[in-house]
C-alpha cells in the first residue's frame, strides 16, 4: 500500500517534468470509477437519508434531518455494540497477527511464500462458509465447548455459540488476513542492518524492537487496523450467524430497515452515521500515529 503511493508520487514528480498530462490520464480510470461507483451512489444515499414519507405512499425529498436523530436514538445500542465489537476484534487480530507476520518476515526463510499462502488460504472459501464452519466448531455439544467446560472457562450450562464472544471471535477470525498482510509487508521491508545497528549500539532485543522494528512497522499497523476495523464495524454476517438478537450490530439494523421494513430514509441515515462515526474515529488515529506516507 505504502509502496504503491510512494511510487505513484515519485512517478508523478518525474512525469511532471516531461509532460503534465500523463498522470491525469493515468488517474482517469480510477477517478471515473470512484465518481460512478462511489460518489454518485453516496450522493444518492445522502439524498435518500433526507426524505420523508412511507414506502406505500412514496418517499419525498424534504431535508428531513430528523431521520438522523431518530435512527441514532433508536439504535444507539447497536451502534455502540458495533464499535465495541469491531474494536475488540481489531485488538485480537493485532495481537495474533503481529507475531505471526513477524515470524514469517524474519524467520520464514525459504518457507515465506508457503506461509503467506497459508495465511491467505481461508480466502479460498467463501466468507459465509467460513463463518458457518464456526457454528460447527463452537457447537454446544462440540469438543471446544466441552474442553472449555472441563477447564472451567465456560460455566457448566454455558455456551459459546449465540454469545458476544462467538461474534467477536468470528469477526477476528474473518479479518485476520487483512491485518496480517499489511503487517508482513512493512516488517519484511525493514533492513536487518537497522536492527543489527541497534544491537551494536548496545540495545537489548526488547529496546531494539521498541525503538527500531516497531516504529518502522507502523505503516503496516495503521493499514492493518484500518482494514480490519472499518469493515468489521459494518459487518452483520457474524452477528447474525453466531449471535442472538442481543448481539445484533448496526449492519443488521441497516439491512433489515432496507429490505424488511422498507424504511429507506432511516436506513440511509444510519449508513451515513456509521460512515461519519468511523471517520471521526480514524482521522485522529491517523494523525496521532502520523504515518504520512499512508495518507499522502
Amino acid at each position: 500500500m505504502t509502496d504503491g503511493t510512494a511510487t505513484r508520487s515519485a512517478a508523478a514528480a518525474s512525469a511532471e517534468r516531461r509532460r503534465r498530462r500523463v498522470p491525469y490520464l493515468l488517474l482517469l480510470p480510477g477517478g471515473l470509477w470512484l465518481a460512478f461507483f462511489y460518489i454518485l451512489p453516496m450522493l444518492q444515499l445522502a439524498g435518500t437519508s433526507l426524505k420523508s414519507g412511507s414506502f406505500a405512499g412514496g418517499y419525498r425529498f424534504s431535508w428531513e434531518f430528523s431521520n438522523y436523530g431518530a435512527g441514532f436514538s433508536d439504535f444507539s445500542a447497536q451502534f455502540l455494540r458495533s464499535i465495541a465489537y469491531a474494536g475488540l476484534a481489531t485488538l485480537i487480530t493485532f495481537v495474533i497477527a503481529y507475531p505471526l507476520a513477524y515470524f514469517i518476515a524474519f524467520r520464514g526463510g525459504r518457507y515465506k511464500n508457503l506461509l503467506l499462502v497459508l495465511v491467505i488460504m481461508p480466502f479460498l472459501f467463501p466468507f459465509l462458509l467460513r463463518t458457518l464452519a464456526w457454528k460447527i466448531i463452537l457447537a454446544d455439544d462440540g469438543f471446544v465447548v466441552d474442553t472449555l467446560k472441563a477447564i472451567g472457562l465456560v460455566s457448566h450450562n454455558g455456551r459459546l455459540l449465540a454469545t458476544g464472544t462467538a461474534v467477536v471471535a468470528g469477526i477476528a477470525y474473518n479479518f485476520l488476513p487483512f491485518m496480517t498482510l499489511p503487517l508482513y509487508v512493512s516488517l519484511e521491508k525493514i533492513e536487518p542492518a537497522m536492527v543489527e545497528a541497534a544491537h551494536d549500539l548496545y540495545a537489548n532485543p526488547r529496546t531494539a524492537f521498541r525503538k527500531v522494528t516497531f516504529p518502522l512497522s507502523m505503516p503496516g499497523v495503521v493499514a492493518g487496523t484500518l482494514l480490519t476495523l472499518i469493515p468489521a464495524a459494518g459487518d452483520y454476517v457474524n452477528a447474525q450467524l453466531l449471535g442472538t438478537p442481543q448481539q445484533s450490530m448496526i449492519g443488521n439494523v441497516i439491512q433489515s430497515r432496507f429490505l424488511l421494513v422498507l424504511d429507506y430514509p432511516v436506513a440511509a441515515a444510519l449508513s451515513f452515521t456509521l460512515m461519519l462515526a468511523i471517520l471521526a474515529m480514524i482521522i485522529p488515529y491517523i494523525r496521532f500515529t502520523g504515518t504520512e506516507d499512508l495518507v499522502a
Binding site: S54, P245, Q247, S248, Q255, S256, L260, V261, L262, D263
Partner: peptide, 17 residues
C-alpha cells in the same frame, strides 16, 4: 400497507434489528 409497516418495524426491532 400502513399496518404492515408498523408490524414489520416492531417485529424487526424484536429480532434485534
Amino acid at each position: 400497507p400502513d399496518e404492515r409497516e408498523q408490524f414489520d418495524a416492531m417485529f424487526s426491532e424484536t429480532i434485534g434489528a
